[in-house]
Write a protein that binds this DNA or RNA. Structure first.
Lengths: 191, 191
DNA sequence: AGCGGTATCGGACTACAGTCCGGTTGTGTC
DNA sequence: GACACAACCGGACTGTAGTCCGATACCGCT
C-alpha cells in the first residue's frame, strides 16, 4: 500500500508496527469488542493522537490489521489459478465456478476473522461501502454475473456477506446453512 | 403493546408521549444522526435516566417512534386484503405475488423512514436481529419461500433490506434499481 | 555536521452513550 | 382518608471515541 512519493518516516513506521502488534495481542486476549482505543494506545506506548491520526478510527485499525490477509485473497482472485483466479487465459474457468470459489474463499476468510471484519465494517455510517475492499469484491462479482443489472445484483449478494449479518445468522442457523444459502443465491443470479 | 397486568403509571405515560413528540420534532428538524440523547431529554423536559429507562438506548427510541407504522404494516400482512395480506381464505393469493407485495410495501416504508430505521438497527451488535420486527418479517418470508431451506433464504433476502445496505446502495444506484434487484432475488428464490 | 521546514507525537480536552442511586410521586390496601 | 410500598424520576457520574495543538524529532539540503 505505502504510497510512493512521500516515504514513511522511520519513527512513524516503527510506531505503526508496534501499534498493530499491540492491537493484535489485545484483541486476541480480550476480544475485539472489549478493547478500547486507550488500551491499545497504552499497550503500544503511544499517545492517542498518534493512534487516531494513523488509523482514522477503530474501523480503520481493524482494516489495517486485516490488510495483509485481504490482499492475499485479492491477489488470488486477480492472478491466482482457476477457479478462484483467472487461471490460464486460453481456458478461462466458468463464471459460475469462479463465483462459487470466491464465495467459499471469502466465507472462509470471514469466519476466520468475524469480529475483526465486523469492527472494520462498523462505525461511521456506510463505512463498509466506502473501503476499497468492498469496491473490489463488488466489481469482481459484477463481472461474473450475467443478469440485466449485475451491479445491483452484486450489491444484493454482498449484503448477505456483511459481517454483522453472517454473525447473527450463523449464531442461529448452522454456518454451513449460511454457506449453502449464499451459494444458492449465487446460482439463482447466474441463472 | 402495553402489557396487561402492571398498568402504566399516569406520569410515565405522560412522559412517554412528551419524549416521543420531542424526539420526532428534533429528528425532523436536525436529522436523526445530529440529535443527542441529552438533547432529546432536555427538549422533553425530562432527565436522562428517564429517557434511558423507558427506551433502553437510542435504537430503542427509534423503535418506539416507528412502532405505530410498523404495526400498520404487520397488520396489513396478517389480516389485510390480498396480495399483501392473506385475503379471502377461499382463494389465497399466489405466494410469489404476496412476496412481491410485501417487498414493495416494506421498501416504501423503508425509504420513507430510512434514517430512523437505520438508527433502530444500529447500536449494540446484532440489534437488528433481536427486535421483534425482524423475526416477524423473517417468519413471513420463510412461509412464502419454497426452496430447500426457506429459513436461510429468508435471512439472505432480508440482508438486502437492511437499512444501512439500502441507504448505501441507493446513494450510488437509483432506488428503483434496488427495488428491481430485490424483486429479482425474490423471484430467483421462489423458482 | 549543522540547519530549516515539516510531518509526527502525545496528552489534555470535548462530546456523547449509557449507568446509578437517593429522593419523590402514584397506586392499591385497610 | 391515611399508609406502605413499589415504580418512577432526574441529574451527577463513568467510560469511551474522537479532536486539537504546542512540543518534538526526522529528513533533505548545504
Amino acid at each position: 500500500m505505502r504510497t510512493s512519493p512521500p516515504r514513511e518516516r522511520a519513527d512513524a513506521a516503527r510506531n505503526r508496527a508496534v501499534v498493530l502488534d499491540a492491537a493484535a495481542e489485545l484483541f486476541r486476549e480480550h476480544g475485539v469488542g472489549a478493547v478500547s482505543m486507550d488500551a491499545v494506545a497504552a499497550a503500544a506506548g503511544v499517545g492517542k493522537g498518534t493512534l487516531f491520526r494513523r488509523f482514522g478510527d477503530k474501523a480503520g485499525l481493524a482494516v489495517a490489521l486485516l490488510d495483509e490477509q485481504e490482499r492475499v485473497l485479492q491477489d488470488a482472485v486477480l492472478f491466482g489459478p482457476a477457479p478462484l483466479g483467472p487461471g490460464d487465459a486460453a481456458a478461462p474457468p466458468d463464471p459460475r465456478q469462479r463465483l462459487h470459489a470466491f464465495l467459499d474463499a471469502y466465507l472462509d476468510y470471514l469466519f476466520d476473522h468475524l469480529d475483526l471484519v465486523r469492527m472494520s465494517e462498523t462505525g461511521s455510517p456506510g463505512a463498509r461501502y466506502r473501503i476499497g475492499a468492498y469496491r473490489f469484491w463488488h466489481r469482481h462479482i459484477s463481472l461474473l454475473l450475467a443478469g440485466p443489472d449485475p451491479a445491483a445484483d452484486a450489491h444484493a449478494l454482498l449484503a448477505g456477506l456483511a459481517a454483522e449479518h453472517v454473525q447473527a445468522v450463523a449464531a442461529e442457523l448452522d454456518p454451513d446453512r449460511v454457506r449453502r444459502a449464499v451459494r444458492r443465491l449465487a446460482d439463482a443470479l447466474t441463472t
